[in-house]
Design a protein around this nucleic acid. Structure first.
Length: 280
DNA sequence: ACTCTGATTCAAGACGCA
DNA sequence: ATAATTGAATCAGAGT
DNA sequence: TGCGTCC
């Protein structure tokens, strides 16, 4: 997640990008959770989600329906992957999110009182929440459409990587670089943009990324951990450049830690980098 | 002067018609 | 009871 | 391409 593509130094990110040409029967797997969010946030009219006559939201169903149809039109057979249990989070992180949500609620109320429609929309979007019902409704829709989906035991990204690595699908469609870290041979980015004809689909090959960065799978995983992944925080003061340079020099987090100047960089206490590494 | 990091902010879908 | 993103772009500021 | 509509 946090291992964003933009986080990689431009010069080093030699992973070649080439225009994606549809193979015969591509079956990319797609993480459904993010789609759900985006549909609920974006599919609106006059600030409100689309609803049926009973007032129940249908934005997510519309979104999935049309996007899936469009993919089928282009010869893509998608397999959606739903998140299972969300990754465990730290209490500090939870508190931070709670605070942000509270702030958005306050801002929303202010905007409502001031009658600022633009801000009302903005903060309403920020408060969007995906429920279990949304998930099951979408799954039901996919079933009716005959579109396969998988509910991942834990994180969707890992499940996708497994499907892709096993050759069950052509590739994994996601914006999340963690998907690569999980070992997906092929990552497809901008899947939705390209459906919208705004940007070309970006095909990233794991092999070529490693080659371009001159890294092994092991050092690449360490790199992603240093950049900050979902499972543990990163070291303050170490960003993409230093992380890459340090790994080139020392090959592993252990070696880096042994040589880091403790006066300059503070390593988090009980830093669970090894556990994070084990997850990938 | 320049490089890097980290904080902040914003926007987020798809269709069809003109 | 509990909940809730993220990538990209931009800016500020620390460190070199 | 821009814009109103989708429910």
């Amino acid at each position: 997640m946090a291992c964003g593509g933009a986080a990689f130094p431009r010069r080093a990110s030699v992973p070649r990008r080439r225009r994606f040409q549809f193979p015969k029967l591509p079956k990319p797997r797609i993480t459904a959770s993010m789609c759900l969010y985006q549909f609920l946030i974006a599919v609106r009219s006059e600030g409100q989600n689309l609803t049926n006559e009973d007032g129940e939201t249908t934005s997510h169903l519309m979104g999935f329906f049309y996007r899936t149809l469009r993919m089928m039109d282009n010869g893509i057979k998608p397999i959606y992957v739903f998140d299972g249990k969300p990754p465990q989070m730290k209490s500090g992180e939870l508190a931070k999110r709670g605070a942000r949500r509270a702030a958005a609620e306050v801002s929303l109320k202010e905007a409502q009182e001031a009658g600022e429609q633009e801000n009302i929309d903005k903060y309403t979007r920020r408060l969007v929440r995906v429920t279990k019902e949304h998930n099951t409704e979408v799954q039901q829709l996919l079933t009716l459409m005959g579109i396969p989906f998988v509910v991942a035991p834990a994180e969707a990204e890992a499940q996708c990587a497994a499907l892709a690595a096993a050759g069950k699908v052509y590739g994994a469609a996601s914006e999340d670089m963690d998907t690569l870290t999980f070992g997906t041979p092929t990552l497809l980015r901008h899947m939705t943009y390209s459906e919208n004809r705004k940007k070309p689909i970006n095909e990233v090959s794991y092999e070529q990324v490693l080659e371009g960065l001159e890294m092994t799978k092991e050092t690449f995983v360490d790199l992603c951990i240093l950049l900050g992944c979902d499972y543990c925080e990163s070291i303050r003061g170490i960003g993409p450049h230093r992380a890459l340079a340090l790994l080139r020099e020392h090959q592993s987090i252990e070696n880096i830690l042994a040589s880091l100047d403790p006066d300059k960089f503070t390593v988090p206490e009980d830093w669970p980098y090894a556990e994070a590494r084990r997850l990938f």
